[in-house]
Every structure is written in C-alpha cells, then in structure tokens.
Amino acid sequence: MSEAMKLKESLIAKRKRTNFVALILSMSAMTIGMVFLLWILSILFIKGFSAIDWSIFANSTPAPDSKGGGLANAIVGSLMMVGSCTFISAPLGVLAGIYLSEYGTRSKVASVTRFVTDIMLSAPSIVIGLFVYSLVVARAQHFSGWSGTIALSLIAIPVVVRTTENMLRLIPGTLREAAYALGASKWRVSLFIILRAAKSGVMTGILLAVARVSGETAPLLFTALNNQFFSTNMNAPLANLPVVIFQFAMSPYDNWVNLAWGGSLLITLTVLGLNIITRILFSDKKEG
C-alpha cells in the first residue's frame, strides 16, 4: 500500500471515529431526556396514586397533621377559574387571531402586535401576577377568584392568538377567493368559512392554552391566594390546586405532603391528557 493510500485510510478512519462519537453523544442526550421524563412520571405515579382515593374528591383540605381530608375545594376552585378563563380568553384570542391573519397581513401595527404576542407567550407569569395584583386585588382590597381568572386569561390569550393565526394561515387562499367571488363580505368569509375550515386547529390552540394555565402557580399566589374551606364564591379567595400543592409540599406535615403528590398527579394527568387530545384532534384534521 502506498503512503498516500495509508494516509487516506487513516483519514477516513478518523472521520468515521469522530462521526461515531458524535452519534453516540447525540443518542445519549436523547436517552438522558427520556430518562428524566420516565423518572418524573414514575415518581409522580407511584407517590400520586398512593395518595389518591375517593376521599380526595369528597373532602376539603384538612388541618395539618390530621387524618383524612382531600382536595375537593381546590379541585372545584381550579375548575372554576380555568373554566371562566377559557370563556374569556377563547373568544378574545380567536378574534385577535382572525384579525392578525385576515386583516392585518400587511399592516405595521399588526406585525408589532404579532411580535408582542410572541414575547408575551414566554413572559414570566409571576410578573403577570404582580400586574393583576396591583390592578385588581390592591383596588378591591381583597384576593379573589376573579383576579385569578384574569391573571390566567392574560397568560392564555397569547397562546390562543398565535395558534389561531397560524391555523387560519394554513387555509388555502382559493377558499377565500371563492367566497368573495360569490359576493360574501369579509367578516362572513372570516367567521363562517375560514374559521369553520380551521375549526380543529383553533380548538387545538384553545385546549393548549387550557393545558398551559391549569398548571400555572405563580400568578395565582398573589391573586386567588388560597382558601382552606369549600367555596364557590369568585369574589373571595378561592382554593386552587397549584397553590395548595405549593403550600402543602413546602410544609413539614406528612399528610399535607401526601396530598400535594396526589394533586400533582391530578394536574399532570390533566395537562398531559389535554396535550394528547390536541394531537389526536389535529392529526385527524391532517388526514381528513
């Protein structure tokens, strides 16, 4: 074998080696990610399921170091806040999304709005809590479920806006043109044709927003606060799962920590369930 051939061989061997090392590293990165996911989920399932029984849905949060008790007040409070947040943020977000996709394609203001919405998607949620505190709670002089709802809505709206806009943009322009050719006005086209065609995509956005806010804790600390007792009064402090989990997990009492695990499992199952539902919804749409 000539000298040049040998050199070439060793060069190829070296390149192959580098490639091999890089691929191994990349695979181990993936493995680390998956190990973390499985680790978190398995811990959550083991500790959570042992804490969950029927009484968790029937009783309200107990006193420290006592027997029994559940999370009923927190579950109801969370459902009420997330539910009313959906009713506020879905119409507002969808309307804004329609504007950005149908009316504001070329306007300067719309592109600024788009940019700001993108930034608000990742804005620190605790700051939104501070804002709602100074706007609502400080004025009303008391914490309330409504202020929690407002804080959650402010977090949900950007999510709905961005997904709605992206989904509407996927609808082919020919559909719009066909409707215009029949003499339909722009608002009818946007609302009854484009929005309807993008229905499952828009639903996906709303569900993703719900999933996002149902685990949010930080903004609720300063707005809805917490309530030891069962209450459905949105004008008073309202118990909710995330804040209960936070307070109970940080406490030294075993029964509280145990309930915190149960609550964590409930929240995670809800969030992951919603995420999986959105995927099914959206993949159905792609096939059809």
């Binding site: 329609i98 700051v127 501070l130 100074s134």
Partner: peptide, 23 residues
C-alpha cells in the same frame, strides 16, 4: 367585526404597556 377583532388584537399590546406602567 373589523373593529372588535382589531381591538382584541390590540389588547395584548395594552396589557404589555399596562404591566410596564403598573410595575
């Protein structure tokens, strides 16, 4: 319809300014 949808898209801008000012 145009004005309501425009207003709701402006909402996010207003919130950003509001957060800044209130803080």
């Amino acid at each position: 319809f145009f004005r309501t949808s425009q207003a709701s898209s402006m909402f996010v801008l207003v919130v950003l300014l509001g957060i800044f000012l209130s803080l």
